[in-house]
């Protein structure tokens, strides 16, 4: 059979397949069962034509056309998998806590963050022994601004609370996600993490000085409630990124690319858990933290902090305690 005859015979099939593809590619494109059947048959025959292209001696342009047609139909046949809540919930509450519990990266980020935080808080607190440290970190204006903003803090209106809660999500969760991404390259990630640890620690050190007075008291009551979630969240997002960053150096026997891929799969739920914590922290910081003492005594904020710590404990330790999960094959039977 000559090519021209063959093309004449096949062209209607290909046109038909293309037409069905066009319809599928439209928004909410749906085909009737008969058409789906026809689509599949046409797709298979196009595949066969492509497979036999060289023995049919089809011209390269036709082979090119067939390639694209088959690729397009393939994309419609094996479509994107739908979003499933159960998969994500499982990832978030079953697999992720267990991964976090044993993750060296979380431990590293935890110790780096808290070590630097406490160290800079200690140095900033002891102004006699280390004069000028706080001013170097926060700048003179920064120290003054921090003090004056808490000097006569009288709470905010409800509208301001709402606005600030939104701002905290936008800013903090944004920093968390960027920290996650930067940690993949390790160096910029550690810069972000240590920068935040040192700045936060120094602020705490400054506000805990006896001479901070009224501002210091306001600061302490302000930060109590949302502290646990916020500080854990920044550590978690950094750790998730570090997990990917380390994975292409320490592959654990896989190829580098497979190791990267696997780490990415593990790390994404951790980063998303961190985002959820940032959002919880932001709503506490927006609506509960700024409430003045006369409406909400300190012990309420304190108990909120205790409850959030308890929730974190449940998440990390109870959900996360290593067990033989169904997904992993036990080493020895």
């Amino acid at each position: 059979m000559k090519v021209s005859t063959l093309l004449e015979k096949r062209q209607p099939n290909w046109d038909d397949l293309e037409r069905l593809c066009n319809r599928l590619q439209k928004r909410r494109g749906r085909l009737s069962p008969e058409e789906v059947n026809r689509f599949v048959t046409l797709y298979r025959s196009a595949c066969a034509d492509l497979a036999l292209a060289s023995s049919y001696q089809l011209p390269p342009t036709t082979v090119d056309y067939l390639n694209k047609l088959v690729g397009r139909a393939h994309n419609q046949l094996y479509r994107g998998r739908d979003f499933r809540w159960k998969t994500w919930a499982d990832a978030l509450f079953v697999y992720t806590p267990q991964k976090i519990f044993n993750d060296v990266c979380v431990h590293i980020c935890f110790f780096v963050f808290w070590g630097l935080f406490l160290l800079s808080a200690f140095i900033a607190y002891n102004e006699q022994r280390f004069p000028g440290f706080a001013e170097q970190v926060l700048t003179v204006n920064g120290v003054d601004g921090l003090q004056s903003s808490f000097e006569d803090f009288e709470g905010r209106t409800y509208g301001e609370n709402c606005m600030m809660a939104g701002l905290y999500v936008w800013n903090n969760a944004g920093i968390g996600l960027k920290c996650f991404a930067y940690m993949i390259l390790i160096v910029p990630g550690f810069l972000t993490l240590t920068f935040n640890a040192v700045v936060l620690g120094t602020s705490f050190g400054v506000m805990f000085r006896p001479e901070a007075g009224e501002a210091g008291v306001n600061f302490k009551t302000f930060v109590t409630a949302h502290g646990p979630f916020e500080l854990t969240a920044i550590i978690l997002s950094a750790a998730a990124g570090l997990r990917i960053g380390v994975s292409w150096i320490k592959t654990g026997g896989l190829t580098r690319m497979s190791s990267l891929f696997k780490a990415g799969q593990d790390a994404l739920p951790i980063a998303l858990a961190a985002v959820i914590m940032f959002i919880m922290a932001a709503s506490i910081e927006g609506f509960i933290s700024p409430t003045p003492e006369r409406y909400m005594p300190w012990w309420i904020k304190g108990s909120i902090a205790v409850i959030s710590c308890g929730m974190l404990m449940v998440y990390f330790v109870i959900l996360g305690y290593p067990r033989r999960s169904t997904s992993e094959v036990p080493d020895e039977v």
């Binding site: 209106t157 409800y158 509208g159 301001e160 609370n161 709402c162 606005m163 809660a165 939104g166 701002l167 999500v169 936008w170 969760a173 944004g174 996600l177 927006g286």
Partner: peptide, 24 residues
């Protein structure tokens, strides 16, 4: 006046949440 202020605040919050979701 307080209600108006609260409404404005709430919509600002929604705006920030939208921007966060949209950007990321």
């Amino acid at each position: 006046n307080a209600i108006g202020e609260a409404l404005a605040g709430m919509s600002q919050m929604l705006l920030f949440l939208f921007l966060f979701t949209f950007f990321f």
